[in-house]
């Protein structure tokens, strides 16, 4: 536990020191949102709003994950091996990415509210859907970017591996968010929410079990 916290602190420090990454992500969100605003005008329909939100979050998170293991390459890889084992590393990395993806999706929501208004009726359900979606995204992307990193291959490999695997999470999340927009109550959406929670936990466990095989030389 202590090791996980120390790793997390380390990951956050690294992020702060390389703040240009955070800024470039923010600029991406702003740029894409404004591009949509210019092209579509200020009043997209509810389902278009939801779709566009998730397309922006989707590509933002894929872009983010492509450099998820940037600081663990070369001799740093061996350094990390000495200070923490694979299971600690994957948990810390997943928690860090969950936080990052939540920030990303909340920022996108805020930006969309500014440009296109906020059509969400049931805010609590939308928020929960966003959190669960971000969790599923970060689990899948942590594992696939770990795989891409271990191949020492090109940057597009991570995206190729991740995109088809993200679709189940994406489909469930956007279904929940669409329900939140039209104002379905929490109890009525419990079925979808339960499925997404089960999916998040299942893939989280699977990533946790598989990662040690990846994290060795």
């Amino acid at each position: 536990m202590q090791k996980i916290v120390r790793l997390l602190v380390r990951f956050f420090r690294q992020e702060v020191r390389n703040s240009n990454v955070l800024f470039s992500l923010g600029l991406y969100l702003l740029g894409v949102s404004y591009l949509i605003y210019l092209l579509s005008g200020s009043t997209p329909s509810d389902s278009a709003w939801n779709t566009l939100l998730w397309v922006v979050v989707f590509f933002g998170s894929v872009q983010l994950s492509s450099r998820s293991f940037e600081f663990e390459s070369g001799s740093y890889f061996y350094y990390y091996q000495t200070i923490a084992n694979a299971k600690h590393t994957i948990i810390a990395k997943m928690l860090f990415n969950v936080a990052y993806m939540m920030l990303l999706s909340l920022a996108t929501w805020a930006l969309f509210s500014v440009f296109f208004g906020n059509p969400v009726y049931n805010t609590a359900l939308f928020f929960i859907g966003l959190i669960l979606g971000a969790t599923g995204f970060s689990v899948v992307l942590t594992l696939t970017s770990g795989i891409a990193h271990r191949t020492k291959g090109n940057a597009t490999l991570g995206a190729i591996l991740a995109i088809p695997l993200l679709f189940p999470v994406l489909q469930l999340t956007s279904a929940i968010n669409l329900q939140a927009i039209v104002g379905v109550t929490l109890t009525d959406a419990a079925n979808l929410l339960g499925t997404l929670v089960a999916l998040d936990m299942g893939i989280g466990l699977l990533a946790y079990l598989l990662f040690p095989y990846l994290w060795q030389d």
Binding site: L143, I147, R150, T151, L165, P168, L206, L210, F211, Y213
Partner: peptide, 22 residues
């Protein structure tokens, strides 16, 4: 073999979710 086995296992589970549950 090791890395692609990891991806294969993860991918198969996701495929079953997608064609069997959703």
């Amino acid at each position: 073999a090791r890395i692609s086995a990891v991806y294969n296992i993860f991918a198969f589970v996701m495929m079953i979710v997608f064609i069997g549950i959703l």
